[in-house]
């Protein structure tokens, strides 16, 4: 028995991976399937799930009401489509901003003296280890009318002698965008750094030797070679932004509703898990499509575990 196990590498491997496979199947894959099943179900009056097969939830998501106040059979109100679109646009904007802000810093760290690199990296990680909720709270304090930004602006205005009216920044789409960028910036910096660090210095020398100036070296050598990092970073930023509801909840108030807020409210306030499940599935499908096309174009590197 033991001898047979000793020689059967395949069984050894299976046994080692078994706890992971079971755990992930029961707690990640089964829940996803269950979500799929109940998204075709109906809500009972007391907020429970009735297992059946109906497309009502998806029809509602598309904006068609199955019973309208006006008594028509169907009427159209694209409120949920708007929410989905808003989430996509926000995720896109956040990703672009995060690349623009994160790339130079990642480049700076990767090209820094090796002895100092760890310190600079550590400085990126500290805010990341500060709790997610606390980071949103920090921005809430900065953005509100009496907050840090208005104080700073007021001080400048006073210095220049311009009359200053505190800006209303909290509970705006802009506030949500800033919060998202802040939350996810480290997730872009680290993978880009990892791929930049791999670039051998001789490549820069070769480029210079062949007559490329700084800008052309960057465009022709650095940027293409760091693409795996940008791809990994984009996945690590885009997907969570699509699904987050705290940032919009706290910095957007009731003004900026994203698909995450929609799902959360269906589960906890409106008590309609079937509709929430349908929304969650649409969200998942959207992120998977984006990931699929993105990684098919650029590949899926090991930088994904750089964080």
């Amino acid at each position: 028995m033991f001898q047979r196990l000793r020689e059967n590498k395949s069984v050894q491997g299976t046994l080692l991976a078994l706890p992971t496979m079971i755990w992930l199947s029961v707690l990640l894959i089964l829940p996803l399937l269950l979500t799929l099943v109940i998204s075709f179900g109906r809500r009972s009056p007391d907020g429970n799930v009735i297992f059946t097969f109906t497309l009502d939830n998806y029809i509602r998501l598309l904006g068609y009401h199955t019973n309208c106040a006006g008594g028509q059979a169907r009427c159209f109100d694209p409120i949920y489509a708007t929410i989905l679109w808003r989430s996509l646009v926000l995720a896109f904007n956040t990703t672009v901003l995060v690349i623009l802000l994160g790339y130079p810093l990642a480049y700076f760290i990767a090209r820094a003296h090796p002895k100092k690199r760890n310190l600079y990296l550590f400085m990126v990680l500290i805010p990341l280890w500060t709790n997610f909720v606390i980071r949103v709270y920090a921005w809430m304090m900065l953005l509100r009318k009496e907050g840090g930004i208005n104080i700073a602006l007021g001080w400048f205005a006073n210095l220049l002698g311009i009359p200053f009216q505190p800006l209303e920044m909290l509970y705006t789409p802009g506030a949500v965008l800033v919060g998202m960028v802040y939350e996810f910036l480290p997730f872009m910096i680290l993978p880009i750094f990892t791929s930049l660090e791999k670039i051998d210095n001789s490549l820069y020398e070769a480029a210079a030797d062949l007559g490329a100036n700084a800008i052309r070296t960057f465009l022709r050598v650095t940027l293409p070679l760091s693409m795996p990092g940008v791809v990994a970073g984009t996945i690590l930023v885009f997907i969570p932004v699509m699904g987050t509801f705290i940032v919009s909840d706290i910095l957007g108030g009731r003004q900026v509703i994203l698909v995450g807020n929609l799902i959360q409210r269906q589960y906890l306030d409106a008590r309609d898990p079937t509709f929430g499940a349908a929304a969650a599935l649409i969200l998942m499908v959207m992120t998977l499509i984006v990931t699929y096309f993105y990684t098919r174009r650029f590949g899926f590197g090991e930088e994904i575990v750089a964080v």
């Binding site: 996945i235 799902i263 499940a277 994904i304």
Partner: peptide, 24 residues
């Protein structure tokens, strides 16, 4: 299967996993 399932938490938004677990 094991290798691919490792990427689930990376490519699927956390909220989907959260409500999935809640439903389960």
């Amino acid at each position: 299967f094991s290798q691919v399932s490792l990427y689930i938490p990376i490519v699927i938004p956390e909220i989907v996993m959260g409500i999935g677990a809640l439903t389960l």
